[in-house]
Amino acid sequence: MLLQANNITKNYAAHKALDNVSIGVKEGSIFGLLGPNGAGKTTLIRIINQITGPDTGEVLLNGEKLQQRHIYQIGYLPEERGLYKKMKVSEQSVYLAQLKGLSKRDAEKRLKFWFDKFEISAWWNKKVEELSKGMQQKIQFITTVLHEPKLLIFDEPFSGFDPINTQLLKDEILHLREKGSTVIFSTHNMSSVEEICDYIALINKSRKVLDGSVEDIRRSFSSHIYEVIMGSDENPSDAIRVQTDILESEKLERKNMWRIRLQEPNLNSNALLQTLMQHGTIVEFREMLPSMNDIFIQTVKNDSTNEE
């Protein structure tokens, strides 16, 4: 584990922001921190960034208890983010890089590289206020990754990004992982979670209610719904219905093709397939795993009803 947070509890005057939350982030993985607004994600992220300290519990980076020098190994793009409006893009980027321990010369060299890569070298001497919001976001992204941190933390990275920048950001995040970086990102954009996350933890009302790999979680939430497309001269539904539950069926445009959605909790997929084969030619067959979005909503709802 690159990052291990153990039994973190954090209280603010009026409420408990985190209640005994533990997460482990594997090196080289992308870890999604999910949860509704106000669940405590940002608090956890701030604790990892040493902006605030936990009341109890500890955070280990590479097995070491978090210390101030570790900030040089972390890059953080907060949800509330901005830049000095009156400063030149270059001066500002160098300043932020210096705060992360880079020398001025080193910072400039790396910045030139990134500016070339993003084709924004023309902005070097511009003031931030002359740039559009999307342009500023690119600068923010660059300054987050410039010191090549082992651990990258993005808090709601896609909020406020336009689709083009969102795609750019996704590609860069995946690219950074390939190069060995570890990424934590918090979001409630669930489609992006399925797309890029390897692991997730779901936090609701300051407690962790779910965690694991995205694959495992989706499988464990399986409600054994399958979709099959098969060829048959006559509607096979009636014959199938005798053996298992059919949710819906329809005839496709193509000749003698049927799409059937069914639920079968008792048989595994192979056994089910064997049954189906008797009623026609199987063209497509797959299990319908619930989306992260469904899992998110279901878990949060259950969690709330359990409490009441």
Binding site: L77, E80, R81, G82, L83, Q140
Partner: peptide, 8 residues
Amino acid sequence: RIVEVIVS
């Protein structure tokens, strides 16, 4: 909103 980046 630059302050959170800086205090990190």
